[in-house]
Design a binder for these strands. Structure first.
Lengths: 256, 256
DNA sequence: CCCACTGTTGCGGTTCACGCAACGTGCTGT
DNA sequence: ACAGCACGTTGCGTGAACCGCAACAGTGGG
């Protein structure tokens, strides 16, 4: 997940690019000191210090304690809160998402395709929250999650082509790591209109997902339900999928 | 809410500062074109274009349509998602928050003090969601919200002094706009240990809030419940406040 | 069909951001 | 307790990088 391997961006503004990298580093590691950030960027610690001071002035980062280590700031939450609200998919799905979560009692997520991963952009918790976990902002592998499979199944060809060029990471013993098996799975997803996983991302964690389509039929997001295998068993998949497809269709209808 | 009036920051890195301003502008207005952003920053549109291209390369902004207007990107959500999770207050409050929301059936929020405003950093929706609204990221006036009153009541002196120097904005007919009345209200909050609002931010919207304290007794956040007046009437305030205080105390105990 | 407007790119000058080194401070180890 | 160390922050000078200009390309409107 090294960050400096980007496609031919014409000519990024150096200091801004570095500042953005700092945010990524902080997101990945939590609290980090100036020296370590500087070393990671390959710049002098004074440079890192200045960049951090600037970001702090805008509230994007903040000092952890009086001791001078930094972490991400609340200003980011402000930005993302309004930013997420502008993502029309989130806006449209919020209502049906909440209803579905209350009905099923499991956690419901909305995910979109984000550079070769499925990123969760919104979440509604179910009543039975055995482990309260926040998936928002997490990027999950496309081949090991239900929402990932759905997004991948309906994605443009080049996304699948990119993925075919690299090995499929094994998350658990059940993870699909063979490209031909994955292609078959995706075909099955397209055939029945929904996807599922059984312990392929984490042992004991199951999930079901359905595509959210625009009026033009384009798949822009995936709605997913996930829960522990003892509650969300494979025998429940078809019934859950039926509700999920209905909810996803409704969310899609709300899109402009 | 002009952004260039900052305290004596030594010497911000210019381009990074401008990039951060761009994010704020996009958060405020949604989709904006390059020319308008440039004019707003007082820079040439080519400069704005380059800054935006850099931010886009890191996923912090994205092009709205093929047409070249920009909006905030999903990368921000990724950052904020992990960033919010690192806010130990959010982490600690998540569980009790969810339970309380399920129990009361109303929306529960966690807010912190953010430069003269109460910012909601986490939210748990209640089952009875008459109007599903996302408060996360929204900055609300300190004198017109229950959580704001709580944060203000226990804030350092200089925060109150700053506020005393400026007029209190009137949001509704019920908003407290007199500084002496506000001071009395804050004293009442301190006396009983919780705060409330009756239609002072929006007509028909009530709220109750309690302080979250660290082991050292410092107030770092406020837990609030809000709902329409016909469901969350003033007669319910004491009972709700009791649960809220208990939950806030529990959340505080989970803090390191 | 052309015009007005948009956003994106070479190019050169000059500002501005970087690296260096010194400073102050808090922690640690013996 | 003191010294040593590592950390983050701050002047200062220089060179590189960023900005403004202007020309280019694409699009919607008249």
């Amino acid at each position: 997940m090294r960050n400096d391997d980007k496609e031919p961006l014409v000519q990024p503004v150096q200091s801004v690019d570095r500042a953005a990298q700092i945010l990524e580093i902080l997101a990945r590691r939590g609290e980090v000191g100036v020296t370590e950030i500087g070393a990671d960027l390959g710049v002098h610690k004074s440079t890192a210090s200045r960049l951090l001071a600037t970001l702090e002035g805008r509230g994007l980062v903040e000092q952890a304690r009086a001791r001078g280590t930094y972490r991400l700031g609340v200003g980011l939450i402000r930005l993302a809160g309004t930013g997420a609200a502008q993502l029309d998919v989130v806006q449209a799905a919020r209502q049906v998402c909440a209803e579905l979560a209350a009905d099923l009692g499991e956690t419901v997520n909305v995910a979109v395709l984000d550079e070769g991963a499925a990123m969760n952009v919104s979440q509604a918790r179910g009543s039975a929250a055995v482990a309260v976990q926040n998936w928002v902002g997490r990027r999950t592998p496309l081949h090991a999650t239900s929402s990932g499979k759905v997004l991948l199944a309906y994605a443009p060809d080049d996304v699948r082509r990119d993925l075919a060029g690299q090995p499929l990471a094994r998350c658990t013993p059940a993870t699909i790591t063979d490209h031909r098996a994955l292609a078959a799975e995706l075909a099955a997803v397209r055939a029945r209109g929904w996807g599922a996983t059984e312990g392929e991302l984490e042992v004991g964690l199951n999930g079901v997902a359905a595509p959210v389509r625009t009026a033009a039929g384009e798949v822009v997001a995936a709605l997913s339900v996930s829960g522990p295998a003892y509650r969300l068993g494979a025998d429940r998949f078809p019934a859950v999928a039926e509700q999920l497809v209905a909810a996803a269709t409704e969310a899609g209808a709300l899109l402009g």
